[in-house]
């Protein structure tokens, strides 16, 4: 009996887990709508400046410079009215910790020879941690953390559809950007449909469902959503035709660059050039 309920819980947990992940990642635009420093910048300038910072992090080998850039990122998060606890949790969980796990062997003299800092024995093996090993791991992890932090800061201070529009500055065709926008729009709709379907099933079968039946229900839902999405695709295309779409989308470009944006870009440009020139 216990095993059955565990399996049933698996289907339920998977469904609600996927839905809450999608919802959190898609609906989390609360920070983007706050009136902070990063939110006030033109999206194109902001994206460009963050790319420049990431390039500087990649090119410099000075650990203090990477640390300084990381601290700058935290400061930017602070003046953009981002909760630092939330920001640190979002940036440190998983990717930097995972990179630490990958870089861990580089601590030892077998991979990074050099001045010995600390030695110990484990499972009959003499292990030596070296100074260059520690520095290289520290630089690697800090680099990953700084780059992830800049990327996360960009994504949480910019509304997702603005990020999509920014793709245009990299020469991505308008049609592609528009399709991405439409996909983004309809993911919400389908999340709602999945959730309502799940509640409808739950209201009829109660909380217990045999895991095999659960798998069947998930299968039906996938098929049902496929049919719905095909139908929706046809109808949306008709709605586009009806308003004059003829294959070449025209969109509203309402980005505005002000003196503050140019000042910020100048600061970023000078900082990055100095880093590359003096600390590469």
């Amino acid at each position: 009996m216990k095993r059955k309920s565990r399996n049933n819980g698996f289907v339920e947990r998977s469904l609600s887990g996927v839905l809450s992940f999608l919802k959190n990642s898609l609906y989390a635009e609360e920070y983007a709508s706050r009136r902070g420093f990063m939110q006030s910048l033109d999206q194109r300038i902001k994206t460009l400046s963050f790319i420049l910072f990431i390039v500087a992090i990649l090119l410099t080998k000075d650990i203090l410079i990477v640390l300084a850039l990381y601290l700058l990122c935290l400061f930017l998060a602070y003046i953009s009215k981002i909760d630092l606890g939330f920001f640190l949790k979002r940036t440190w969980v998983f990717i930097p910790l995972f990179s630490l796990f990958i870089a861990f062997p580089a601590l030892f003299s077998n991979f990074t020879p050099g001045e010995e800092l600390f030695s110990f024995k484990a499972a009959g093996l003499a292990l030596v941690i070296t100074r260059p090993g520690v520095l290289s791991v520290l630089l690697f992890v800090l680099r990953v953390a700084a780059m992830v932090s800049f990327s996360v800061l960009l994504s949480i201070t910019t509304r997702h559809f603005d990020l999509l529009k920014v793709l245009r500055i990299f020469g991505i065709p308008q049609a592609f950007v528009m399709i991405m926008g439409i996909c983004y729009r309809y993911i919400y709709l389908f999340i709602g449909i999945i959730e309502n379907t799940y509640f409808a099933i739950k209201s009829r079968v109660g909380t217990y469902m045999h895991y095999k039946k659960g798998q069947q229900v998930v299968g039906w839902n996938i098929a049902f959503l496929w049919v719905r999405s095909c139908r929706l695709n046809e109808e949306v295309y008709k709605a586009m035709l009806s308003r004059g779409y003829s294959g070449e989308p025209m969109v509203l470009d309402d980005f505005k660059v002000r003196w503050k944006d140019w000042l910020w870009l100048a600061f970023t440009g000078v900082t990055v050039i100095c880093i590359i020139r003096f600390f590469r």
């Binding site: 999509l164 439409i182 729009r185 929706l232 109808e235 008709k238 709605a239 009806s242 308003r243 779409y245």
Partner: peptide
Amino acid sequence: GFVFQNPDVQLFCPTVKEDIVFGPLQL
């Protein structure tokens, strides 16, 4: 001009403003 039965079909842009100006921009 055609107003569809299901507004979710007609509102396919990421923001309301973009949706409203979609038609005149295409035309």
